[in-house]
Nucleic acid binder design. Structure first.
Lengths: 238, 238
DNA sequence: CTGCTAAATTAGGTACGACCAAAAACCTGG
DNA sequence: CCAGGTTTTTGGTCGTACCTAATTTAGCAG
């Protein structure tokens, strides 16, 4: 007997209707009790279906009067969270994260050089200014670093790459935090590299942007892994 | 008053315990009724929490005796499904999908050439054989095509790239299906290109693999977009 | 008329309790 | 020892009642 779960069926139907555009972004689905009379299902089942859609990022549920299930479109956060779960669950090594970034980010730089707008440049420069603040804490530096890398991805105007890169950057941030990875020299080298890449993107120099970005992320990866190895030896069961 | 939802709290706690390794993959969480007495929450709440974890790919729920919430680790399917939701929800254009593949897949080819095993090669060749079957339908061809591309990603031995690429390949498959994209010439060109790339990967020729893959996906993208444009003009409101 | 507070209203959140359905384990007749 | 039905465990669904949040609206003071 093949009996798919009622809540899954409802969730699937609502999902299709949302993706089909029947409910536009920002509109609210009918209230739970209304869905109950429409679907002849129990409120428990209806609620489970809504929960599924919420976790998938298709709706956002608000309580109170004029609350309800607000339709939204799954975006970067959704992809980022599943990527993060995979990274944590599979215990993906820092080396693999850096390798992935080496694989993807040069391509982001190429597209950024191709499609950047003036406001993209502003975002890049703002992030660079934040990095150059020498008095900032390590966390500040890393955050500004993430912001810059995400800004590059954003400048590519490719939503898929942007979502993936922001997840990746945050994961790398989390892994390189709370360890003695970054010293003053790394910070100044990073700043210089970012500036040179930003220049290439500004000049719409696609090949230059790729080359400089490749070198930058490769050098960063090598530096981090060297330190990672050392600390791994020093603290075998950290 | 800041009252986070009870089910979210439970879900978060269980999620952390799973990711922390407290429950190993394949083990089962306590039954719902047991969690009820442990947490002092209602069964409704407990079930909602489990549903959340299920959607996030952290558990798989089976019914019946010796059923329950089996712990698993979120993998490619999880990432792929959220990427697909984003693609459908944001109505990402075929051009952007192809652009993304052009950005990522050459890097996959490089890593594949670097890390491939013999069994990876077998998978690649098996997919190529499936492609070469001339009598196959369009769906068969496209499926075999997807299999080959996924096999390249798998050979990179980078789980993140693999997950992302398989989602991307399937989305491109879905977009190029049911349209007159592929003719006999494209099929034979594709087969030749795949064989040449496979050879480079076999020879561990990283640069060659990158170059050939770049050319292949670029040519494919150009061909598809040319046809896409034409059909878009012919059928303005398809 | 203005502005603030309090009640009414609408929606989601939680709790029980009962019962259904699936699947493994168990038992019993052959 | 085996086949087939029965028991038991565990998730799935239902219905009702009640709590909580948030907005709206009504009422009251100034």
């Amino acid at each position: 007997m093949q009996v798919p779960k009622a809540s899954d069926v409802l969730a699937e139907e609502l999902r299709e209707r949302i993706l089909r555009g029947e409910f536009r972004e920002g509109t609210v689905l009918p209230p739970e009790r209304e869905l109950v009379v429409q679907t002849q299902m129990s409120r428990t089942t209806v609620r489970e279906a809504l929960r599924i859609l919420e976790v998938q990022g298709l709706i956002r549920i608000k309580t109170g009067r004029s609350g309800g299930a607000y339709v939204q479109v799954p975006g970067e956060e959704s992809v980022a969270s599943s990527v993060n779960l995979m990274i944590r669950g599979r215990r993906i090594r820092l080396a693999a994260l850096l390798e992935t970034r080496e694989a993807i980010e040069p391509a982001c730089a190429r597209l950024a050089a191709k499609y950047r707008t003036d406001s993209d440049l502003v975002a890049l420069e703002t992030a660079n200014v934040a990095i150059s603040v020498e008095s900032g804490s390590l966390a500040d530096f890393l955050q500004a670093n993430v912001d810059w890398h995400v800004a590059v991805a954003t400048a590519s105007h490719n939503e898929l790459l942007t979502g993936f890169m922001s997840a990746l950057s945050r994961a790398i941030y989390a892994s390189t935090d709370n360890q003695g990875f970054i010293d003053a020299e790394v910070r100044s080298l990073t700043l210089r590299a970012h500036q040179r890449i930003t220049e290439a993107i500004r000049a719409r120099d696609a090949d230059g942007a790729v080359r400089r970005m490749s070198r930058h992320v490769h050098a960063y990866a090598e530096a981090v892994l060297k330190i990672d190895e050392r600390t791994a030896i020093e603290v075998p069961e950290g």
